[in-house]
């Protein structure tokens, strides 16, 4: 059975994929559906969903359109989730590969370094980094990447450690392939499937992290994000519960979808393991 068939057999993964596609669509269409800034006051504040035509999700404490915020927030969430994961991978994969392949002192040094970052409480570090660097999209991406690369490095290192002793790698050494070729052509392709699975889960975690930072007021002040919307609605929860419920559901669905897709990828890429489940 090929990969796509196995993936399609997983009902949860398909549902996840559909939700994800909708969120991506929403993010892509945001500039066309709501060309105006989502920060602009457009109506009277505290409109409940459906109260006034044209504002299906109502308005917030400042009279801003919740639906516009949601659409622009989708863009921000996905973008930050994706880019910070790519940055984290580009730190973690090379470090893990070098540590696992060369072992010995290089491994010791790199793993001490990784352990150090793993010891520091994740979220606290992200807060401190963003606060020190001043909140902006770049600082948020960097902070999330810095707290999320260690698991990648450990995973890749583990894979390299086990694969480098496989006989086909030893055969490649014997025929005189260079270290670079062995790392890139022989080992790396065989570590990809767990890395892809981890990456899809990391995007989900990154979206959660970004929303938490925005919730605490550490979001980029120029972009609308779901976490910010919830944070702004916190004090008016008793009067306007929907202001916190709607963006919360959006985060929940997106993160859930990414997790479902990740599990589906895992099952499809590692069929032996899936059968045991």
């Amino acid at each position: 059975m090929n990969f796509f068939k196995r993936f399609a057999q997983n009902r949860g993964a398909l549902i996840g994929l559909i939700i994800l596609a909708l969120v991506v669509l929403l993010a892509l269409l945001a500039p066309f559906l709501y060309p105006d800034s989502p920060w602009r006051m457009v109506q009277r504040p505290f409109l409940a969903p459906g109260e006034v035509a044209g504002f299906p999700l109502g308005t917030d404490t400042m009279g801003r359109d919740v639906a516009a915020g949601l659409a622009h927030g989708a863009w921000v969430s996905l973008l930050i989730g994706l880019i910070s994961t790519v940055v984290a991978l580009s730190i973690g994969v090379p470090l893990g590969a070098l540590a696992g392949y060369f072992g010995g002192k290089i491994d010791d040094a790199l793993m001490r370094f990784t352990e150090f970052f793993q010891t520091i409480p994740n979220f606290a570090l992200a807060i401190v980094l963003v606060a020190i660097m001043e909140p902006s999209t770049v600082s948020i991406v960097l902070a999330i990447a810095i707290v999320s690369w260690p698991p990648v490095a450990r995973l890749v290192r583990g894979e390299f450690l086990s694969i480098k002793h496989r006989e086909y790698v030893e055969a490649a050494r014997l025929v005189g392939q260079t270290h670079r070729d062995i790392i890139i052509k022989q080992i790396l392709p065989n570590t990809l499937s767990p890395v892809i699975v981890l990456a899809s889960l990391m995007v989900a975690t990154a979206i959660l992290l970004e929303s938490s930072l925005s919730f605490l007021g550490l979001g980029d002040p120029d972009t609308m994000s779901w976490g910010y919307m919830i944070g702004a609605a916190r004090t008016v929860m008793r009067q306007a519960w929907w202001l916190s419920v709607i963006p919360g559901v959006a985060i929940l669905l997106t993160v859930l979808a990414l997790n479902l897709v990740g599990e589906g990828l895992d099952d499809a890429l590692n069929p032996q393991l899936a059968r045991a489940r």
Binding site: S212, M237, S244, L252
Partner: peptide, 22 residues
């Protein structure tokens, strides 16, 4: 467990306040 795993911590907290307190 997947649902709890995917829910933002602070949002669960707010929803709990909404339901159990408010």
């Amino acid at each position: 467990s997947l649902l709890f795993y995917a829910t933002p911590l602070y949002w669960v907290a707010m929803m709990a306040v909404l339901v159990f307190s408010v």
